[in-house]
Design a protein around this nucleic acid. Structure first.
Length: 582
RNA sequence: GCGGCGGUCGUCUAGCCUGGUCUAGGACGCCGGCCUUCCAAGCCGGAGGUCCCGGGUUCAAAUCCCGGCCGCCGCACCA
C-alpha cells in the first residue's frame, strides 16, 4: 500500500476537523451513544444528515433502478438471517480470520498468513488449534519484535444473535444485502416473468463487527448499503444500453489495473468503455456498464471525473466469492482515496452454493433460438406379452428392464435365441424393442452469472460533504449539488417589522411545504447573517421578500454559490425551485 | 490490540505543569426583546457545564495517581 501512503500526503488541506465540528453543531451526524461515552464504529445521522442521505438514496434509485426499469427491480429482505445462509454463502468460513497475538509487543497477525509466508505451506482453512500447533512446532516468532506468539484464536466479523428462545437457533446480522437477492432470486425471477438479464437491487442496513473501526463515518460497524445483483446468462449476456450513460460507449473510465499496480503504477489510466470490454480489462460488458453508471452517479454528488477512479483488486485482496473486483475510489481531504463502491464479478458462485446447500433448483431455463431435434434410443416394453408369460414375476422383470440402458438391452437382443433372459426368466424377444426416437429440445438449465455494484451510503454522505465544504475567508459555504442538499430553499422576509412583507414570506413558505420541498423560514438577525446560516448548511437557493415585493409581486432568488440574485414573479417561485432540485 | 497525544457549557477554548483564589472564565452559537439595514459577529436581557466515567491520594481534586471508555496519529487489522 505504498501508493496509498503517497497519495495520502498529497491531500494537504485538512478540513476534517472543521467539517466534523460543523456536522455535529448543525446536525448532520455525530457519534452514537454520546451520553454513555460513545461506541466506536457507530454514528447517528442528525436532521440534516438524514435528509441528505435520503436525497442520495433517491438519486441512486433514479440511476440504478428507475432509469433501468426494463432491467432492474428492487426488494427488501431481513437483516437477521439463519446460520444456514452464511454457511452457504461462505461468510461463516471466510469472514473468520485466525489471529495470533505477540505476547511481548502485543502485535496482532493473521496466523494463516504468517505460517504461509514463513513456512511456504498452505495454512488457509486450518483450525486454530492446528495453527497454534504449527506455530509451536516450528517455533515461529513475532515478525516485528521476535517475541513469543500466543494461542491462535478466530475473529469473526459477523454479529451473532439467537432467533427465538431456542439456544441452538443461531442467527447472524447480514454483512451485505446480497444474500437476500440470491435466496429470493427464483421468486423474483418468476414475478418478473422470467426476465433475464435481471437486476435485483436492495437498500438496507448491514453490520460488520470490525476489529478497530477508525476514520469516523468511513468505517462503521453498522451502515446502509445500496447494491444490486445483476443476473445474466454468461453465454448470452445481451447488450447493455450504453446509450443511457453519459457519453455512451466511447466515454472514458479511469481504471488502475491490477497488473499495473504490481509493477508499481499508482495513477489510473483512461480507457473507453469499449476498450475496457474488448481488451478484457473488465471481464464482463455488464460490469463495465454498471461501473460507468456509478461514475455518472458519483459525479452528481459533486465530484469531478478526476476525483474518482476504479482500482482493480489483486487476487489476495478479493472477497471469496469474486473473480474480478474493482473498487471505486474517491478523493477526500483527509484520507486521500476512499472506497465508495465495490464492483465484483461473482459469477455463479452464490447461486450454485445456495442450490447445493438448499437442495433447490436455482437455475433458469435458457431457451434455444431454434428447438434442437435429438435422436434418442428408447426401450419399448410390451407389458402385455410379459404379463401373460410371467404372471406375478412380471413386475420384477419389467423393473429390471427399465433400469437398463438402451445399449444394454440391444446387447441382450443380439442373441440368436428366440428369447432373452432377464432376472432368471425367459421372455420372448418381441416383448422388448429398442427404437430410435426423435425428440425436440427447447432449451437447457443454466445458473446465471452475477455482477454486483455496491455502495456504502454513509460514505457517500461524508464524501459529498467533504467535497462541498469550502471557505471564503471565514465564511463557510457547503456547495452541495441542489439535488442532494438536505434543505432545498430558505425563505426570508427582508425585515420583520413590516406586516405585509412577513405575510407574503409566510405564504410562500407555506406553499413550499405544501409542495413537499424541504424549506426553512428564518427571521432571526440581519439578512446577511441569515444568508450565512443558510450557506453553512448548503441551502442552494434563498428567497427574499423585500419592499418591492409588495408593489410588483416579485421576489429575489439568491444563488448560494455565486451570491447572485435574480428577480422572479411570486407565482413562478415554487415551480422554479422544484424544477432545480428534482 | 499496542504505543504516543488528547477529552472542560451546543461549538471552540482558558484554567491543569506549581491542588485551595473555580460559586469553572471567555468567545461564538442558541432563546427573548430592541433595531430594520441585501450578504454573519449593533444594543439589552436570558438559558446553558455529570470539568469523559469509576476508583484512589489529600483537610481539600477540573488539576496528582490507577483503571476503563472515547477520539486523533503511527503500527497491526479492514471478507
Amino acid at each position: 500500500m505504498e501508493g496509498l501512503r503517497i497519495l495520502k500526503t498529497e491531500a494537504k488541506e485538512d478540513k476534517y476537523e472543521e467539517l466534523m465540528e460543523l456536522a455535529k453543531r448543525r446536525g448532520f451526524f455525530w457519534q452514537s451513544f454520546e451520553i454513555y461515552g460513545g461506541v466506536s464504529g457507530f454514528y447517528d445521522l442528525g436532521p440534516l444528515g438524514t435528509l441528505m442521505k435520503r436525497s442520495i438514496i433517491d438519486l441512486w434509485l433514479k440511476y440504478f433502478v428507475l432509469r433501468h426499469m426494463d432491467l432492474v427491480t428492487i426488494i427488501e429482505t431481513p437483516v437477521i438471517n439463519p446460520a444456514k445462509v452464511f454457511k452457504a454463502s461462505g461468510h461463516l468460513e471466510s469472514f473468520t480470520d485466525p489471529i495470533v497475538r505477540c505476547e511481548k509487543c502485543g502485535g496482532i497477525f493473521r496466523a494463516d498468513k504468517l505460517i504461509e509466508e514463513k513456512l511456504k505451506i498452505r495454512a488457509e482453512g486450518k483450525k486454530p488449534e492446528e495453527l497454534t500447533q504449527i506455530i509451536k512446532e516450528n517455533d515461529l516468532r513475532c515478525p516485528s519484535c521476535g517475541g513469543p506468539l500466543g494461542e491462535v484464536r478466530t475473529f469473526n466479523l459477523l454479529f451473532k444473535t439467537t432467533i427465538g428462545p431456542y439456544e441452538g437457533n443461531t442467527g447472524y446480522l447480514r454483512p451485505e444485502t446480497a444474500q437476500g437477492m440470491f435466496i429470493s432470486f427464483k421468486r423474483v425471477h418468476t414475478v418478473m416473468r422470467n426476465r433475464l438479464p435481471l437486476g435485483i437491487a436492495q437498500i438496507g442496513r448491514v453490520a460488520r463487527n470490525e476489529i478497530s473501526p477508525r476514520q469516523g463515518m468511513i468505517r462503521l460497524r453498522e451502515f446502509t448499503i445500496a447494491e444490486m445483483e445483476f443476473f445474466f446468462d454468461p453465454e448470452k449476456p445481451g447488450q447493455p444500453p450504453f446509450e443511457r450513460i453519459s457519453g455512451g460507449i466511447k466515454s472514458k473510465l479511469n481504471i488502475l489495473r491490477a497488473e499495473d499496480r504490481l509493477e508499481g503504477v499508482e495513477k489510473p489510466s483512461q480507457y473507453t468503455i469499449e476498450e475496457a470490454i474488448e481488451e478484457g480489462i473488465v471481464v464482463s460488458p455488464w460490469m463495465a456498464y454498471w461501473m460507468a453508471v456509478s461514475r455518472d452517479f458519483v459525479k452528481e454528488l459533486g465530484l469531478s471525473e478526476e476525483e474518482t477512479f476504479f482500482e482493480e483488486k489483486l487476487p489476495e485482496e478479493r472477497a471469496h466469492y469474486a473473480t474480478q473486483t474493482f473498487d471505486q475510489l474517491v478523493k477526500v481531504s483527509r484520507w486521500g482515496w476512499v472506497e465508495v463502491s465495490g464492483h465484483a464479478y461473482r459469477g455463479d458462485y452464490d447461486l450454485s452454493r445456495h442450490q447445493k446447500y438448499s437442495g433447490q433448483d436455482l437455475t433458469v431455463f435458457r431457451r434455444y433460438e431454434k428447438p434442437i431435434k435429438k435422436k434418442l434410443k428408447k426401450v419399448r416394453i410390451n407389458k402385455a406379452i410379459i404379463g401373460r408369460e410371467l404372471g406375478s414375476d412380471a413386475v420384477k422383470v419389467i423393473g429390471a428392464l427399465r433400469a437398463m440402458s438402451p445399449e444394454e438391452v440391444e446387447k441382450l437382443l443380439e442373441t440368436p435365441e428366440e428369447f432373452i433372459e432377464v432376472e432368471g426368466r425367459r421372455i420372448p424377444k418381441d416383448a422388448v424393442k429398442v427404437v430410435v426416437q426423435e425428440e425436440v429440445v427447447h432449451g437447457e438449465k443454466v445458473i446465471p452469472h452475477v455482477v454486483e455494484p455496491s455502495f456504502g451510503v454513509e460514505r457517500l454522505v461524508f464524501v459529498a460533504l467533504d467535497k462541498a465544504y469550502t471557505k471564503e475567508g471565514d465564511r463557510v459555504v457547503l456547495r452541495l449539488p441542489p439535488r442532494i442538499a438536505p434543505i432545498k430553499v430558505v425563505v426570508f422576509p427582508l425585515v420583520t417589522n413590516d406586516e405585509e412583507i412577513v405575510r407574503i414570506a409566510r405564504e410562500i413558505y407555506e406553499r413550499f411545504l405544501e409542495a413537499g420541498i424541504a424549506a426553512l423560514y428564518d427571521t432571526s438577525g440581519a439578512i446577511g447573517r441569515r444568508y450565512y446560516r443558510a450557506d453553512e448548511i448548503g441551502v442552494p437557493y434563498a428567497i427574499t421578500i423585500d419592499h418591492r415585493s409588495k408593489e410588483d409581486h416579485t421576489v429575489t432568488i439568491r444563488y448560494r454559490d455565486t451570491r447572485e440574485q435574480i428577480r422572479i414573479s411570486i407565482s413562478d417561485v415554487i415551480s422554479w425551485v422544484t424544477e432545480k432540485v428534482r
